[in-house]
């Protein structure tokens, strides 16, 4: 690694290790990593894997905050390893651990089965209000209609908001901030017609009312999605549905 030689800076990286076949429980292992100011925490981990300890496991792909695979706890905060720089830890040490609130598969790799199962449940795709044939052309949308949901479509499924959410930590049944942001992204899309179906999930016992308006999810989100806003908008809507259902003649009451 030519770029790391010569400048003399070294940082102590404490990494939470867990190899299920040999470790009883997770433990911290320290590595001394030479670095330059342009190196991310992800690059620090790559240095460890390439030069110090090939057994270290972690997820990554894009290196540019787009794929959402490198979420981890960095000095106790949920962050993307590729978007966090080693130069920002002037004390000369940084602690890197697997994302909070998820079971550890191995080292920094967590199991995201729970999230993926929930993602499937909300049908994260547009279910057209009215089918159009090819001859009828595309589904049109005005810029104002786009504005309503665009921010929520930036979610990269990095799960940082789940590691930030104390309610998800206490009760993993809660669908959680990221899923609510995505649910809202489709429900708020003028071309979509499946909001009623998705609101059953938002208004369920696993839904929005598990949120106690902590707001940390939106703070840690690397894409400014503001999942807390999606949750809160849907509290109002779910409450509206709840009471309207009582005055409707005969609805899909459950």
């Amino acid at each position: 690694m030519a770029e790391t030689s010569g400048n003399g800076k070294v940082i102590r990286v404490e990494v939470l290790r867990y190899r299920p076949e040999q470790d009883e429980e997770p433990f911290l292992q320290g590595y001394d990593v030479p670095f330059t100011d342009d190196m991310s925490v992800l690059q620090g981990l790559q240095y460890i894997k390439d030069w110090l300890d090939g057994t270290l496991s972690f997820r990554w792909s894009c290196r540019m905050a787009i794929c959402g695979s490198c979420g981890m706890m960095i000095d106790g905060e949920p962050r993307l390893a590729c978007k966090t720089f080693l130069r920002d830890f002037p004390a000369g040490t940084v602690r890197v651990e697997a994302l909070a609130h998820f079971p550890i598969e191995r080292d920094l790799v967590i199991r995201m089965d729970d999230f993926l199962a929930k993602l499937e449940r909300i049908k994260p795709y547009i279910i057209p209000k009215e089918e159009r044939t090819l001859a009828q052309g595309e589904y049109l949308q005005t810029p104002a209609q786009l504005d309503v949901y665009e921010q929520f479509s930036s979610c990269i499924n990095c799960l940082l908001c789940y590691a930030a959410c104390p309610q998800y930590g206490l009760n993993p049944d809660f669908v959680g901030p990221g899923i609510m942001a995505l649910l809202h992204r489709y429900n708020a899309d003028s071309r979509d017609g499946a909001a009623v179906e998705r609101m059953e999930i938002a208004g369920s016992e696993a839904g929005v009312f598990n949120c106690t308006a902590v707001g940390y999810c939106s703070e840690v989100c690397p894409k400014h999605v503001d999942p807390a806003n999606a949750v809160n908008q849907n509290k109002t809507r779910a409450a509206g549905d709840y009471f309207l259902r009582l005055v409707r003649p005969k609805g899909g009451a459950k």
């Binding site: 199962a117 929930k118 449940r121 049944d173 669908v175 059953e200 999930i201 208004g203 369920s204 016992e205 696993a206 839904g207 009312f209 509290k235 779910a238 409450a239 709840y242 009471f243 459950k254």
Partner: peptide
């Protein structure tokens, strides 16, 4: 994930 299928009564208390 059973609770996903049960409608929550929270709106009553949340409303109050």
């Amino acid at each position: 994930m059973k609770p996903i299928n049960r409608r929550s009564n929270a709106p009553v208390f949340w409303g109050l």
